[in-house]
């Protein structure tokens, strides 16, 4: 086992209606090769052995592609380090004797389920409001190469599509805005010819749903872009603004 001793200050909340509080947990024998989630596994193992309630936290693939893990670590979404999710954060980023704050995503639209686990289904509802192309799949599929797409556009659309919907953008934003997520979902389709027929309706519907969920307003601090594990660019927010402005002034 490892040789780091840490003090964790972790948010504990029994359920959605509990007020919640920060609690201190000493953890010994942390190896610098552990991921942050593995360190929490060690702590939970310790808590279960002591007959205490383990800490609830979101996790799934543990290889940075599912968007399930979250955690606001020492004041940053997915902790220190760029272009990584919490499961890709290693304990070597910390020093022996460190005190580490661990909090859930803080957003009115992401209510806490328990401890560090939040309900991010607001993102699903934004996606369902227009983040798709209506394709008839009953035997009349078009050959992929029949519609030429410039390589640059395809690349940019793919960059936007790498969004894993983790919610780090919302958690990081001082305004609790979901613009980077919504922009990525609008952009990945707006850049492709298949997405154009529904572009207007999509931009309007997804922004409307975003506002309805209670997210804040974008003030272009750029914090989301810095903390995004997939490096989604602010360029996509500008594209969403263009799509939305154009759709707003031309809608009937």
């Amino acid at each position: 086992m490892g040789n780091m001793k840490l003090t964790l200050k972790i948010w504990r909340q029994n359920g959605p209606n509990d007020k919640g509080r920060m609690e201190n947990y000493p953890v010994n024998d942390v190896s610098e090769d552990m991921s942050f989630l593995e360190m929490l596994d060690v702590l939970n193992d310790q808590l279960v052995r002591e007959g205490k309630d383990p800490i609830a936290f979101d996790h799934d693939c543990r290889e940075g592609i599912c968007g399930m893990c979250s955690l606001f670590i020492n004041g940053e979404a997915h902790g220190p380090g760029r272009g990584i999710t919490t499961c890709q954060l290693h304990m070597r980023k910390f020093k022996d004797g460190d005190t580490i704050y661990v909090e859930p995503w803080r957003s009115a639209a992401f209510p806490v389920i328990k401890d560090l686990a939040t309900n991010r289904s607001a993102f699903d509802r934004i996606q369902a409001a227009g983040g798709f192309v209506s394709v008839n799949t009953s035997g009349n599929l078009v050959d992929g190469n029949a519609v030429p797409i410039p390589k640059d556009d395809a690349d940019k659309a793919f960059d936007a599509a790498t969004c894993i919907g983790c919610g780090a953008c919302v958690a990081t934003c001082p305004n609790g805005s979901a613009m980077l997520f919504t922009a990525a979902k609008v952009s990945q389709l707006a850049l492709l010819p298949q997405g154009r027929p529904e572009a207007k309706r999509r931009a309007l519907a997804m922004v409307e749903q975003m506002d309805k969920e209670g997210f804040g307003n974008c003030s272009n601090t750029g914090a989301c872009e810095v903390e995004c594990p997939k490096g989604i660019s602010l360029e996509h927010i500008a594209r969403l603004n263009r799509e939305y402005l154009a759709a707003s002034v031309t809608k009937e």
């Binding site: 948010w11 004041g75 909090e103 803080r106 009115a108 639209a109 609790g176 209670g214 804040g216």
Partner: peptide, 9 residues
């Protein structure tokens, strides 16, 4: 309003 509970850090 979008962030009713502030971060401790």
């Amino acid at each position: 309003k979008a962030r009713p509970v502030k971060y401790a850090k």
